[in-house]
Amino acid sequence: MNVFWLSAVRTGWAIALSAIRLQSRKHLLGYSWEILTPVLYAVCFLVVKRGLSDQSSGADHLVDVLRAFMGITLLQFWFRLLQDMSGLIRTRRSLLRGLNVSEQPLVLAVLFEALFGLCLRVVTVLAAMLFLGLLFPPDGVSWLWVLLSLLSVALSAAALGLSLAPWAALYPDVNKAIGSFNLPLVLLSPVFYPATQNADSLLYWVNCINPAAPVLATLMDAIAGRPPTYQVALVVWTLVAVVLLVLSARQLKAQVPIVLERLGA
């Protein structure tokens, strides 16, 4: 790692730590806000599901609850990172304009802060599994798929967010569009129902082009110890995300001055 990147990582880490400290200082409940929404969703889902389907067996029932909880937790993380990354130039404009600071540490700071949030959510999901009495993934391969899924969810959100960042700074419509995709994406992802295994169905292909769906499907497969159904989609999305992230980060140097000029004071 050359000196530039080492210093970018250090600086990014320092900014992320400061943001985390600030978040804890500004809010009475600190980071617990990140998991309160998924817990509420899970409780609602539990109540609704109990009321609607009495037939499901106990184990299936618990797996459904876990899927809803984990799905909402990770989708919320995905949207949060997408929004933070796409809003990067707008929120950090005074820093970019006023100081001699390159864009890379700021990108890394968003990523580091998101990874901290992801770790928190993963711990919460693991705690939920213990609470529900569900078993952890049975073998090393399943754990590898879990890790790849978590990496993919972070990378796809970061890459899409960063590629949208200059456009989001120029046009506030981009943020509105991201917000309006929130609920449709939850409904289209295997959160409240299991991911379809049928490659002939339209929903299967919709899941393949939805960056969050392969992640959730693979995680549930790994927990159940099944071979992943959406492994190709997951790997392709991860690779696309890496390429998009690198290209978008390289473009920022040229794009930031163009955007800053139009952002005003």
Binding site: R92, S94, G98, N100, V101
Partner: peptide, 14 residues
Amino acid sequence: GHLLEMSAGFEPAL
């Protein structure tokens, strides 16, 4: 080096 917007990036809560 520049002194253009000297208070840039100051976080009020810190």
